[in-house]
């Protein structure tokens, strides 16, 4: 059992280094693969970087998403209905990499589809396709031998979630066997809920920063450009998920199918969020 290499150099590290040199926080956007259909979700994915996304979380749906609120639950149901699978998602990553070899892609999902795929085969295929990291909601450090350690060995980043319940006793464990960045969940709750106050986020990051050199992304409940800007002042990146999924949802027709407005609805919001984040300088560097 070895710790992750300290000086890993991949797309994620390079992107956070670039953000640091620009003295700004980044924008991380979440998009569910297959929502509302596979091709529309790919069109959104490939255009996210030029709209302002610094790093992209691609959602891989699961029938029983116990950490997600109604907005992402429904996106997952639409995606599954559209026939997305983990194999197809990896195929989309491969297509994305034809055009873009710099924007980091992190897969966010639940463990069972990966387990069923086969951990070894999944890590090989995902790495070959150009996936950079994994966020697996239902794999705490106690289960590191399942996927975390094999993923690190295979050269993928394994990104951990820290939460308001991650206290001093627990923090060292959360910061072991991890790399890429730390995803700080600003509330105890599910995706799409109201976010945590910036003051408490700031306090939490101050508590954790001395214990790791990894950058911190903060998510859950960030919906507007102002909120994203506020978070980007104290964290290394702000994560926006449910708000973007809602933009998709609101653009769909009565059969939950994409309309000509769907792709632009998401990208417009990403542009606004990107401007918000780019207008906010990091507190630490100002």
């Amino acid at each position: 059992m070895s710790r992750a290499p300290k000086r890993a150099d991949g797309r994620i590290e390079r992107r956070f280094a670039a953000l640091r040199s620009e003295a700004r926080g980044g924008l991380i956007t979440f998009t569910m693969m297959g929502d509302p259909d596979i091709e529309t979700s790919f069109e959104i994915l490939r255009r996210l970087p030029s709209a302002g996304a610094d790093l992209i979380e691609i959602g891989s749906p699961f029938t029983d998403p116990m950490a997600d609120g109604p907005v992402i639950q429904r996106a997952g149901q639409r995606a599954l209905k559209a026939g997305i699978t983990l194999h197809k998602t990896i195929g989309l990553v491969r297509r994305f990499r034809v055009e873009d070899d710099t924007t980091p892609l992190v897969l966010m999902g639940y463990y069972n589809p990966i387990y069923r795929y086969g951990v070894e085969a999944f890590l090989r295929d995902a790495g070959d396709a150009g996936l950079d990291g994994l966020i697996v909601v239902d794999l705490p450090p106690e289960e590191d031998e399942e996927l975390c350690l094999p993923a690190l060995k295979a050269g993928l980043r394994f990104i951990r979630l820290a939460t308001p319940t991650t206290d001093e006793r627990r923090l060292p464990r959360v910061l072991t066997n991890t790399n890429g960045f730390i995803y700080y969940v600003s509330i105890t709750g599910i995706t799409g809920a109201k976010g945590g106050a910036t003051t408490s986020v700031r306090a939490a990051l101050q508590r954790m920063r001395p214990l790791t050199e990894l950058p911190f992304a903060v998510g859950f409940g960030i919906k507007t450009p102002d909120q994203a800007a506020e978070i980007a002042r104290v964290a290394d990146a702000a994560v926006v998920g449910s708000a973007l999924v809602s933009a998709i949802t609101d653009s769909l027709d009565e059969n939950s199918a994409a309309t000509p407005a769907t792709v632009e609805a998401v990208l417009d919001l990403v542009r606004e969020l990107g401007e918000g984040v780019r207008g906010a300088r990091l507190e630490a560097s100002s």
Binding site: Y111, E142, R160, L161, T163, T165, T166, G189
Partner: peptide, 20 residues
């Protein structure tokens, strides 16, 4: 100690719940 019966069982939950 990890809550396993052979390969079954375990603690596959969100980090928020782990301390509890």
């Amino acid at each position: 100690d990890g809550g396993h019966f052979g390969i079954y069982g375990g603690r596959y939950v969100a980090e928020t719940l782990m301390p509890l």
